[in-house]
C-alpha cells in the first residue's frame, strides 16, 4: 500500500535506487532505438521492392519481435511480480492461436479432415 511507504531512505538505498533507475533508462533507450531500427528495416524492405514472398514473412517476424520488445521492455513484463500476467498472456495466446487455426482448418477451408 502506497500510504505506508513514508520512511526515509538511507544514503546507500538512495544510491542503489538511482543506479537501478539509470540502468532502466538505458535499457529503455536501447530497446527504443532497436525498435526504430526494426521499423526502418521493414520499411526499407518494402521500399526496395524485393520479392513479396520474401518480404512478407520477414516483416511479420519483425512485427512479432516488436511485440515482444514492447511487452517486455515498455510494458514491464520483464520486471518482477509479473509472473501471473505473463502466464495469462501466454496461455491466452496459446488458446487464441489454437482457436484461429481450428477455425481456418474446419470452418474456413471447410473440408472434413
Amino acid at each position: 500500500m502506497a500510504e505506508q511507504n513514508h520512511e526515509q531512505l538511507t544514503e546507500s538505498q538512495l544510491k542503489y535506487l538511482r543506479m537501478e533507475r539509470t540502468k532502466e533508462m538505458r535499457i529503455q533507450m536501447i530497446s527504443f532505438g532497436l525498435m526504430i531500427f526494426l521499423t526502418f528495416i521493414a520499411f526499407a524492405l518494402v521500399a526496395l521492392e524485393i520479392d513479396k514472398n520474401f518480404v512478407i514473412p520477414i516483416v511479420i517476424g519483425l512485427a512479432f519481435l516488436q511485440v515482444v520488445l514492447q511487452f517486455y521492455y515498455f510494458m514491464h513484463m520483464k520486471d518482477k511480480g509479473h509472473e501471473f500476467a505473463k502466464l495469462f498472456i501466454l496461455v491466452g495466446m496459446y488458446f487464441a492461436i489454437a482457436f484461429v487455426v481450428c477455425f481456418i482448418m474446419i470452418v474456413w477451408i471447410g473440408n472434413p479432415i
Partner: peptide
C-alpha cells in the same frame, strides 16, 4: 476444458481426424 469443445459437435461433420 479448452481443448474439447468440438465433442459437442461430433455430428456436424468435422471429419474423422478432428
Amino acid at each position: 476444458g479448452f481443448m474439447v469443445w468440438a465433442h459437442h459437435m461430433f455430428t456436424v461433420g468435422l471429419g474423422p481426424t478432428a
